[in-house]
Write a protein that binds this DNA or RNA. Sequence first.
DNA 1: TAACTTTCTTTACGCGCGTAAATTATTTGT
DNA 2: ACAAATAATTTACGCGCGTAAAGAAAGTTA
Lengths: 348, 348
Amino acid sequence: MEASLRRLPMARIKNMEEFASVSGISRPTVSKYFNDPESVRPKTRARIEDALKLHDYRPNIYAMNQNRKLTKAVGIVVPLLVDPYFAEIARNLEQRCIDAGYRPTLFSAHGDSAHEVEVLDSLRSLKPAGVLLAPLGRASDHDVLEKFCADVPTLLFDSSVEEFGLSFVGSDNRQFTTHITDYLCRTGEPPCFFEMKTPANPNAHRRRQAYLDAMQEFGQPAQVVSIEGEGWEFEEIGRIGGHKALEEGLFSTNTILCSNDRLAIGLLTACYERGVKVGRGEDCQIRVAGQDGHPHSRYTCPPLTTISHDYDKVSQTAADSLFAAIEGHVEPWKSTRIEGKLTLRDSA
Amino acid sequence: MEASLRRLPMARIKNMEEFASVSGISRPTVSKYFNDPESVRPKTRARIEDALKLHDYRPNIYAMNQNRKLTKAVGIVVPLLVDPYFAEIARNLEQRCIDAGYRPTLFSAHGDSAHEVEVLDSLRSLKPAGVLLAPLGRASDHDVLEKFCADVPTLLFDSSVEEFGLSFVGSDNRQFTTHITDYLCRTGEPPCFFEMKTPANPNAHRRRQAYLDAMQEFGQPAQVVSIEGEGWEFEEIGRIGGHKALEEGLFSTNTILCSNDRLAIGLLTACYERGVKVGRGEDCQIRVAGQDGHPHSRYTCPPLTTISHDYDKVSQTAADSLFAAIEGHVEPWKSTRIEGKLTLRDSA
DNA sequence: TAACTTTCTTTACGCGCGTAAATTATTTGT
DNA sequence: ACAAATAATTTACGCGCGTAAAGAAAGTTA
């Protein structure tokens, strides 16, 4: 101990052993401190914190996780990080994890099922206390997902795959579509529904169905325009499909409700390219609405009328549910669906 | 061994020890196999792979990294993942790492310097073979950055902070601005330059300077319009600033070159809101151009004329340089700047 | 100050794996 | 078939930390 205390102040500390000897406290106590500073006597705490100021040592988080019963690690998985919607909700979730004292690690499946499996495998190595998982959906490997949820406390969000995991938290897609359909019907011609034929996300089916149900209830003729297109380049799919639909006059009314904002953004571009004026003014030929409240929907021309996810509420509910489960509050599986808010802009 | 070989095929394998006994091969040899399957005799390899089919065991990557001289982990750090530009380049880099046999882990500083420091600390625990780092720039903590680069093989990209790290790879901002300024001068009135007063990214200064230099060379009067605004909400800053500039008639010509695409997107929205027609047609009042080739620039109205990063080339050069360095090819620090391609669309 | 409680130290082992050295088994060349 | 070369096994230790148990020291109460 004597020798250690006299070591040069700036000698790089390699591990907790060295830091312990430098601070004059035993390693187990130092370990205890890092797990919870309040768990050691104030005097001891002060000595450790003094040493900390001189040596800027930080424990290796991965070594910490190795032999702990309950780690502070939380995995966040989204299907596609290049979609600003997921980037935004991931950022939101990360912040909540940090605020709650957890250590988030972010993963993206990059729209690919095999990659999603890889991510889940990596996550196992992390030994996370819990995982917030937005699955790819239809494309996900259900068996792998089920096994993963059985092994790791996992809360599904955004898109539900069977009743896997602790619970599900997402947006109320039925309410989304019903609400905006209602708005469109009340303010002009009833909407046609513009969607991808083979959507990756199961929410798309709920939205189509909600549209059909709503139209029936309002006593209006429903019309679904399903366009071709694979992958995750929704804007381009919407643009190409929009051109085709406009060219062939597939829309039976002047109002189009898109299955999601990215498709709507593509459709708006198609309209622009064809010289079709979009909006609710007298001189406009067509109304276009989206669904999601995509970060970019504010900046289209015209700005997109849409129904917006309650990002904050979804992420808060998801995070809080997971934290509660981690801390032992057992609850039966349930599905929480958060309502969206109509965001009225110029496009419809 | 006898007992182990008779264990039930579906008993979950917990670690390499168990898997080794199940496969009938010693643990060190199994370890060798996972580090490089080619390094063991074909017969041994076959036995391991047979066992692998029955038991789907995978080594814990974090435990692997713990006591390895050279890990396969690569860290990727971007300043802001909610910006699709960074999301896109991160995705690109991740894929290249995987293809080269490395294991990428993605981090975002979320636009915050303290967070960036946190990320670098976490990265140390990962013991990565190398790091691809796009620093926040002006806001980055230079001391922390310098120390990190000294400890971990780090390649800087996108935005250069002094001569830290192995090398720098990014876009040639001077060429970007010179090129598009030239285009704008040749096709209409010379451009004004629209930028943030206090940009977060050092590239912004290079672009302004390149604009000034180019205008001087072309013998045209330069005019820079610098708008207020803090943070990373560039679109909104551009929109608000655009309104102000248009209101007060700050632009001396009908052509505006924006410092980046996100600012341009905001400006386009301001134009729309004021009924100012943008484009190069006879009936248009103003031309707007951006810089970056932002994923969304294709879908503005009118689609944005811009100068696009060569995402592929930047990421490939960055990744290859890092891999070369990891594999021992020592080279002096150098800065590689990739040229951009003019993307002609309707806005200018 | 004695008796008690709390906290810390010591010691020891575990996590899941890498790695090195010495030994034994297998393959290869002839 | 035998020696040489190659590969696998055994043994042992290390990485950086968590955690448990027993004992010593410090703090608290009376």
